[in-house]
Amino acid sequence: MQKGKVLSLEDRIPKIKEHRRKKANRRLIILLSIFFLLIVIVVYFQSPLSHIKEIDIRGNKIASKEEILSISGLEPGGKLWNINRKNVKNKIKKLPEVKDLEVKIKFPNTIEVHIKEHSSLALLMSNDQVQPVLENGQVLKEKSSLLMNAPILIGFKEDKILKELISQLKDIPTEIYYSISEIQHDPKNTDPFHIYLFMNDGNEVNATIPTLAEKMAHYPSVVGQLDPDVKGVIDFEVGSFFRAYEKEGEDMSEEGER
């Protein structure tokens, strides 16, 4: 029995040694892998690969790339991994036209900035300059060279009346919005929000800003009841009636009233 037991242990010793050797080899491989990984990381941070090579800005139409780069603090050659993306985002969002953005680090050395801008809804005529007005009511200074298909605003100031108008324009159906050529502010003692809209089809609309979106939604159906060869003023200020340029006082039928 004892002899058999000793032989059994002797048979197992080589297997135990082999298991221990394999386990030691695995540990060595893991340690070597960690060591080489650390070397790669150190070499990367010390090499030009860890410096910003490219700054890719996308989605901007109003804000220029130069403006975004200037306010962001980003520049080629800077340390890629020293960038605080939250700080960069907060800096760029100071631009009035920027609604939101995302900053991404793309390996090995590229920064991607995805911009989402406020829409431009109108062009404000001020001091012989045309300045875009954003959907948040902000007027962009020094952007008069920006071309866009939007209504021109005349007689407006940067105040609550302008912001109320922009709020209404946002709610006007797209096809009707693009048919507006010009909006003139014509305040009255009884209605400081009174305006005239000049349409691309040759008609004119008499309206008040607080009900503009609601009334203009009916514009296509109202125009559809009129002789296309006769142009005039569509009054949306209180009810709905039409007054031809050639002969005044031609009212719309009750069916056309809103």
Rank of each mutant, 00 (worst) to 15 (best):
E18P: 07
Q138C: 09
S33Y: 09
S240G: 07
E102L: 10
V130P: 07
K116S: 04
G256K: 02
N84M: 01
E142W: 05
L123A: 15
E246M: 09
M1F: 04
E158F: 02
V233K: 12
P14K: 00
S8F: 10
Y177G: 06
P96K: 14
D56A: 13
K188C: 00
L140A: 02
G224W: 06
L165C: 07
L7H: 08
K94H: 13
G59V: 01
K61F: 03
D191K: 09
A63I: 03
K15I: 08
Q2M: 06
K79H: 14
E117F: 01
R26Q: 07
E67A: 08
K143R: 15
V223Y: 06
K23H: 01
R12N: 06
M1R: 08
L9S: 09
G59M: 03
D186E: 15
I62Y: 11
P173C: 10
E117P: 06
K160S: 02
G202I: 12
K94D: 15
L74K: 15
K53N: 08
E248G: 14
D56E: 08
V42P: 09
I39H: 04
D229L: 03
A213L: 05
L69G: 00
E204Y: 11
S8G: 03
S72C: 07
K163C: 05
K104V: 10
E10C: 13
L37I: 08
Q131H: 13
E255R: 11
I172P: 01
F242T: 14
G4L: 10
V88M: 11
Q46P: 12
E18M: 15
V238A: 10
L101V: 03
I30C: 08
G155H: 14
S167D: 14
I209K: 00
G202F: 04
M216F: 14
P151E: 01
L124G: 03
M148D: 05
V139M: 04
V238F: 09
W81G: 10
I161N: 07
K170D: 03
D100G: 04
V205R: 11
H185T: 11
D56T: 05
V40I: 14
T110F: 06
D235A: 05
A244E: 06
T190V: 01
H118W: 09
L153S: 05
I34W: 02
I195P: 04
F107M: 02
K91G: 05
L147V: 13
V233Q: 07
A207S: 13
P108H: 00
M252G: 11
L169H: 01
K22I: 07
R258H: 12
L28M: 09
E164P: 01
F242G: 01
Q46H: 02
L9K: 11
L146H: 13
I55C: 12
L95P: 15
M1N: 11
M148I: 09
G256P: 09
K89Q: 06
K23R: 05
F35W: 14
K141C: 00
L28T: 11
K163E: 06
S47I: 06
H194G: 01
F236I: 12
K86C: 00
V130G: 09
L95Y: 12
K53W: 03
K15M: 05
H19D: 08
K231E: 02
L49Q: 01
R243T: 12
I92C: 14
A217R: 12
L226V: 12
H19I: 11
K93L: 15
I71T: 10
N84E: 10
R27C: 02
K99G: 07
